[in-house]
């Protein structure tokens, strides 16, 4: 449950730093949902690939 409080605060701060929100994701998956887990990881990987490597432009 700690993450439920930490991640929104982290997202707010990363937003201020100009870092794309899609780079951080919090989801809840139970141990019995292997397929869901795999698809979330795939989605996340694809999303990060689209965003490209993290870089500061100055």
């Amino acid at each position: 449950m700690k993450e439920a409080r930490r991640i929104p605060l982290l997202k707010k701060m990363l937003g201020q730093l100009g870092i794309e929100e899609e780079r951080v994701r919090l989801d809840w998956v139970s141990a019995s949902e292997a397929d869901r887990f795999a698809s979330i990881v795939d989605e996340m990987t694809e999303q990060i690939r689209e965003l490209g490597p993290f870089s500061h432009n100055s």
């Binding site: 730093l17 100009g18 500061h56 432009n57």
Partner: peptide, 8 residues
């Protein structure tokens, strides 16, 4: 770790 903000 991030050192600075990313400027759009």
């Amino acid at each position: 770790l991030l050192r600075r903000a990313k400027i759009k």
